[in-house]
């Protein structure tokens, strides 16, 4: 399958993204505060976008980039939604206090 150098390079990039994703997942699992988890979810989303791009080039189907673009949009929207939720909802502050106490 891996016949040319570009294939090899993209495969390496894919493996690197895998490693990075696992590392971020570890932080997501450990992450002591709530914001660590939001941060790692956000990084995971960025890595997903890059992953889809690299996968599209690896399978020689660059139309995957449309999906990557959409994921970038969704990721941003959900991060902002989560944080707005915790910042401005009165009930969210109670939750933050509870989380901080632990």
């Amino acid at each position: 399958m891996i016949s040319t150098i570009p294939h090899f390079v993209f495969l390496i990039a894919l493996l690197m993204l895998f490693i990075a994703m696992v590392l971020v997942l570890l932080r997501l699992y450990k992450g002591p505060t709530l914001y660590d988890r939001v941060l790692s979810t956000n990084s995971f989303g960025t890595q997903t976008v890059l992953f889809i791009g690299v996968l599209g080039f690896l399978c020689e189907r660059p139309d995957f980039l449309d999906i990557a673009l959409l994921y970038a949009l969704i990721n941003f929207v959900s991060t902002i939604a989560i944080l707005k939720f915790f910042r401005y909802r009165a009930i969210g502050d109670i939750l933050i206090e509870r989380e901080a106490k632990k």
């Binding site: 997501l28 699992y29 988890r37 790692s40 996968l55 999906i67 994921y71």
Partner: peptide, 19 residues
Amino acid sequence: FAVVMLSSVFSLLSALLFV
């Protein structure tokens, strides 16, 4: 809260599988 974040990542991963 961590469960919600993880489930968001879970669906990102399954979306990648669908891709």
